[in-house]
Structure formats: C-alpha cells, structure tokens
Design a protein around this nucleic acid. Sequence first.
RNA 1: GGGCGAAUAGCUCAGCCGGCUAGAGCACUCGGCUUACAUCCGAGAGGUCACAGGUUCGAAUCCUGUUUCGCCCACCA
Length: 876
Amino acid sequence: MAELSTRYNPKEIESRLYEFWESGGFFKPKPDAVPPDGVRWERASAYTVVIPPPNVTGILHMGHALNNTLQDILVRWHRMKGEPTLWVPGTDHAGIATQNVVEKKLEKEGKKRQDLGREKFIEEVWKWKEEHGTTITKQLRRLGASCDWSRERFTMDEGLSKAVREAFTQLYEKGLIYQGNYIINWCPRCQTALSDEEAPSTETEGKLYYYYYLVKDPKTGKLSREGAPLIATTRPETMLGDSAVAVNPKDGRYKNLEKLEIYLPLQNRPLKVIRDDFVDPEFGTGVVKVTPAHDPNDFEMGIRHQLEQRNILTPDGRINEKGKPYEGLDRFEARMKIIEDLKAAGLFEKEVPHRHAVPHCYRCHTVVEPYLSKQWFVKMKPLAEKALKAHATGKVKITPERWNKVYTNWLENIRDWCISRQIWWGHPIPVKGDPDVLDTWFSSWLWPFSTLGWPEETEDLKRFYPTSDLVTAPEILFFWVARMIMAGLEFMGEVPFKNVLIHGTVRAQSGLKMSKSLGNAIDPIEVIDEVGADALRLSLVMLAAQDVYLSKEKFEVGKNFTNKLWNAARFSFLNLKDFKAGEFDPGLDFKKLTPVNRWILSRLEETALEVEFNLKRFALAQAATGLYHFVWGKFCDWYIELVKPTLTGPDCREKEETEKVLFTVLDQILRLLHPWAPFITEELWQKLKEFAKDKSDWPPSLMLAAWPHVEKRRFEDKASEESFKVLEQAVGGIRELRADLNLPPGQALSAVIRYRNKAAHEALLVFQKEIQKLARLDSLELKGEFKRTAAYVGHAASEVEVFIQIEGVIDREKEKARLEKKIEEVERYLDSIRKKLENPNFRRNAPEELVVEEEGKLLEQEALLKTLREHYELFK
RNA sequence: GGGCGAAUAGCUCAGCCGGCUAGAGCACUCGGCUUACAUCCGAGAGGUCACAGGUUCGAAUCCUGUUUCGCCCACCA
C-alpha cells in the first residue's frame, strides 16, 4: 500500500470519491433489496426523504449546508441498514426571486422585461436556468449529499406542471378555489400580490399624524374645522380613498357625530359617519378614517356598512385619477405633499412618533401596500381540518416537540390562501385569458408526491410514498410543511411524511441571520476548500442541537478530528501490513482475548448502541459527540497507546490477535462515522479493505456496507471495564505526580502502587506492564516496601494508592502543602456524604441503590483520607 | 398585544425521567517533537448553574414570579 500522508488532505479525495459513488449508482435505492425473512421489501420499509428544494437562483449557504448534512446523515444511515433508500433532489423555480434575477440581468443590458414581451422574457428565464440553475446542485455534491440525481426534479418541469394543473382542477371542482375582489398585500415594485407569509412585518419607527376633517355649516354651506373630528393616521395619503369616518358605538364623546355633515379636506368630498365595534376609543382620538380599498380592517368595515371602495393607487404605487390633485405622485411623495397642504389649510394638528409593524416584501423589502384587486384564493379551512386531525392522531410527528403547538395554532387560525401572482415566471393559472401565475408554493406543496410521478400512478409513487422524514428549518413551517401535509391528505389521502425534523437557524456569531447583504455570511464552499466537507459537516452537526451561531474558528473541531481519525488509521495500516483478515470473527473468541482487547470491543459496542439510540430520536448532535469521544478519548488516547508495544514488537499470538481486533474496531468506527463524514471514512475503508483476505462479501463502497447494528450484545465485558478504571487511576496518579512535582522529562522514576481490594490487585497484575509503559516508569512494585534512601510522594484514588520514590531530595514543604490541599478536599466531600447519610429522611425516601452507593463512597473516601494523612505524617 | 425559546467556565455549548465532587470543545497556564498525529501528547487553573421565592430527604433540572436577550404570530388606524 502506498504510504498515507501524515496530514489528512481532503482535496485529493473528495471529488474522486463523489464521482465513484455517483457513477457507481450507489445513490439509487436498491431495486431488489431483500430483508432477512426473504419477503420482498414492502412499501413501508422503504426510507424516503425529499429535499427541501433550494431556489434555482440560490447559492449554497450555511443553512443549506446544515439542512442537507442532516438529511444526508439520516439517508446514509438508513441506506447502510439495508433499507431501500431514496433521497429525491430538485430545485424550486422560485417565481419572484428568479424573475428578479433575470430582470436585473436585463437591466444591465439596458433592457426591461416589458421590452421583450412575456414570451421572450420567459425564454430568457429558461435560458438563465439552463446556464446557472446547476450551481446549487453542484454545490450539494461538494457537500457529499447522496441524492439520487437520476430522479432530480424542477418545480416547472413537465411532470410537475401537470401535477399543478391537476391539483388546481381538483380543488376547483370541489369548490375550494374562488376568485374575488379582496384586499391583499401588494408589492408596488414587483407589482404582484403577496401572501401574508411573503409580507413579513418589521417594527418600524413611524409617525402618527393628527389632523382635522371638515364640517359643513348647514346654514352657510361653508366647510370648516369648527366642531369637526380630529383623526389620527399613519398613512395620510390614503385619505384620498376615504369613504367614511367611524367611531365606537359606545363612545360617548361623539354622540352627535352623525348629525354633522363630514367632509374630506383637500378633496372636499362628503363622507359617511358610521359606528363600528372595531374602533378602539382608546387609540388616537377614537375617530377612524375608513379607507376600504387600502386597509384590511377598513375593507371589512366597508363590507359591513356598504361603503364605496375607492382605489386611489396605480399598480406601481402612484396616486391615480381618483386622487386628484395628487395624481401621478408616488405614495410617499403624496404623503408629504398632503401634510404640507393640510398645514397650509390650518387643519394639521400634530405628529407624534409611533412604533408600528409595517409589512415588507420578502424579496425586495419594499413597503407592501394593502391593495384591492381581483385574486384567486384557496379555501383553507377544509384542508386544515384534515391536517389537524392527521396530526392529532399521530400520523405526523414534529421534532422537537415544542413546534407541534406552533403548527396546530397556525392551522386553527388559518386564512384563505391567495394563490395568484401578477408576474410572468411561474405556472399559468389554467383558466382562459387569465394572465396571472400561481404562487410558487402552489407547486412546492405537492413536492413529496409530484416528484414521485403524481398524478400518474407510478411505481415510485407506490414504493416511496408516503416519505419518511422531512428535515427543514423553522422558517418554512407554514409556507411549506403545513401546506404539504394538507396537500398530501387532499390529493393522496395520506400524510406526505411521518416525521418532521426541525433544526436550528444558522446565524452569524453576532446573532444576526447570516446573509450576503449583511456581509456576515460564511461561504460553506470556502470552508470545504479549507478544511474539507467532512470537517464542515461534523462541526455543523455537533453545534446544531439548537440555533447555530457560527464563526470560522468553529470548524476547527471537525478539522482536527478528521486529521486525528486519519492518523489513527494511518498508524493501524502501518502495523497491519502483514495481516490477512477475512476469516476472523472476534465474537467467536471474545472470552479468550486479552483484557485490553476485550475492553475496547466492549466500549465499541456500547458506543454503537448509543449512536443508534440517538439517531433514532433525531439527536444527531449527541450521536456525533459520542462517537467523537470514543474515537479520540478511548480508541486513540488509550487503546492505540496500550497496544503499541505489542504491535511493534516481535510476532506472537497476542500480536496477531491484537491486529485482528484493531482491524475490527477500525472497520466499525469507519462504518459508524460514515453518515457524518462520508469522504474520509470511505477513503480509509477502501484502504482497510486491502488487508482483508477474502473480500468477496465486501460491498464496493462503505456507503453500502452493513451498519453496526447491535441486536444482542456480543462483546460485553464489565470486568475488563472495571479493571480499566484501575489502570486509568494508576496511570493518571503517576502522571499527576510527575506534573505536580515538575519533574524533568528524563527523570528516572520508580513507583509503588498499593491496592485496596482484591479486584484492584487483579487489575494491577493484569495491566502492570501497560501501566509501566504509559506512565513511563523504570520500575513498578505492587504493594512494595519503601526504600529508606528515597523520598516519597503519594497520590490516592478510590481503589489504588500510588507512590513514587525519588532518589535524592524533594521539596518537603511543597509536598506538605500539596497533601494539605488534598486532605482538605476529601474532608469536605466526606462531610457532604456524612450529612446526607445522617439525614433519616434520606434513608427513608431515597432509593435503596442510592443509599448503598453513598455508603460505598463513604468507605472509599475514608480509606483515601487515611492514606493521605499517613503520608502527610511522613513529611511532618 | 399574544405565543415560544434561551440564560451553566473568558467564548460556544452538553447536562434525558430531580440523586455519580456540574461536563466538553476553543481560549488560558505549566511540562513535553514519547518511532500515527505539534491539526499532537500529559497535567492544571477557571462556575454562588440570570435573580427571588416555593415543592422535596435532595433542585442546574420541577412550579411561581422578576429581569435580560432572541424568534414567531397579530388588523389597533
């Protein structure tokens, strides 16, 4: 075998391995997988995930990296378990976002979309998609995502367009789609309707303007502010669309308001006076101007009181002919002009600062205008009811738990969904002569089944629907997840997935959302270039128990760990060089193995159990952390160090056995780690494979190798684990003394270890050689006598007492102080245990085992204290 | 305005059903190039678990309230 470099270099291997996997067809579900009982896999046993389709315009950001890493871990795990596993990839046409991108591109060429005309423009968008639409899928490959690319879909491809038409038709025929004049969120820049979810509000420091309306004197017919109501509004320009003023029916202050003839200033139009419960007497002056065409509440009031709906805005946010004399002005210009004019007319009272929520377009951040227009809607109540029921009966589970309430709360208060958009790029509404297109989400909500072929009854649909797990960020719980559940139930009669895993949002270290425009984004591809995809994945996942606050240093964890793994394997390969595996099953010989080998196998099996337990409950971070500590803290720090002399020593039975165990442990580690770190584990596993004598039953890729599932424990050995604790105490004690005493590295050292019980004695006998090696001792005596010529320093743990004897002089005062500190510590601890045990209530109420445990601790600590005191006497 | 979440070492976080002297990684201090790895090895220092009450033999963990931060939702003009 070629020598491995001393450092892990991900660049060399990543693209080569991905190509190997993809061209080998390993990402495709097994067509003929057969479970142990010989029955063909049933639909229920397939494992399916559909990717949250990134926008075609997108470039991979950290949110994607986390999201897809989590999916890939689950997918690779299930695939290794032997389940027919399918991860469906694809991209979203992202209506407004994509249209904006292409418009911007045209702008640079000095063109507008209107210049091209609709047909030509759409051609341009497709052209753009062909050229740039593969960026994100290429980037997902760099991450290692094991999607079945042969099944890649696009929300505007032919099949999905058909699904969209079918879904629309079905809803239409059921009477769940209607068209109506409605007040909707309108983006004057994008010139389209937006759903409520697309128009998020931001708290804004605004102003509340107070000014007088006019009253007509019945005698003179003159208009004046005498006795007229003062009103307050944040958007004075909408007064041009006023139809009435309203007060609360119970508001005593305005009993006679109806008797007045109220007129609108500037336009001098008569207004109605109405009374409505909506009006809050506490807010402003208690009098509200009513503008049915430009405010959602006023719209409702307008319906209740049959008011005129006066639309005063053009689609691009300018005042139209109804708003004379302000016609042609932009809405914000008009606001200023109107305030000026009101001031000039002596009607303006004051302006006060006012914090309020202002909706903005989620794409271009323009202030959204409530706007009256004809739109298409889906009646959501009937769909939501089914989705609530499916959730209540446990058909869909959301993890973490707390999101369940958020989900149900939203569905219970659902409002109809405005699905038409006045843009060009999107699915046309299949209604003759309608120029609108459908909301992007109208195609994405069908994603879990449309990607599998619906409305055709395909094999894929039968085999892989419903899917298994959906992994997503919380931001699109309503946009997407809830709607998919509704669509799945409506069109397929079944929930689209069984589990929803919601992970944290990736933020910059500052706590802000990462975004390119804020300049605080860390590019995952850059990180992959620097430390490798595996390091990125491991770091992200280990941090991702909740929201992730990222900075570049955080990828060190993964980087260092992959390098450690690389070197552990490198060491193994150097020492396995004349080894032929294949026929070896440690399970057969387990009882005959050396204690060290039994110990590592026992720990390995425990780790495998823990990893699977955590994977099952979607605790991917905990699973990764557990593996990390096993590999680094046990396998590298102890096992490899312990078996070094054996492996590098002369050939013997023990050496052969150790090589076999090392081979097994490394193989299992690589398998366990593969879902998190697919590249490095594959690379190392392929090398490991070269040592196996019989490779016929080894799959071509680690991706397809069997997952270390522990059905029944084969390697459990509590005794060797206990002995190992004694070893750790002994070695740790000597190291501590060495460091405390600041001994020079070459210092010759003899140690004496005394034991407290038979088990400890046996453990010491078993590991005597190892202790000597790890603690770098010249000699080691068990329960030996102290030489009169040497000075001694001691350390006592629960089961062993460790002394080192040093020829020559040691600093007695320093050692005295050290012992005093230790004695004090133990006394304090002993005190707390005694207090606990002396409390009669503790004995009465605490569980039996706990009391026994505490009593054990008491004896242990007492013995320890005795030794420390005896030793202290020597230094007095 | 309503709902949710967070508050633990200098930093980022783990601590499930209440009970091992509250842990890890980074940073820090001391000592080491020990024939896999200095992206490393060994040792160490560092915490009144936000605050105030309560339940309990026992609370970082459960309950109540307070403070600070974050997120989501909402039509108060």
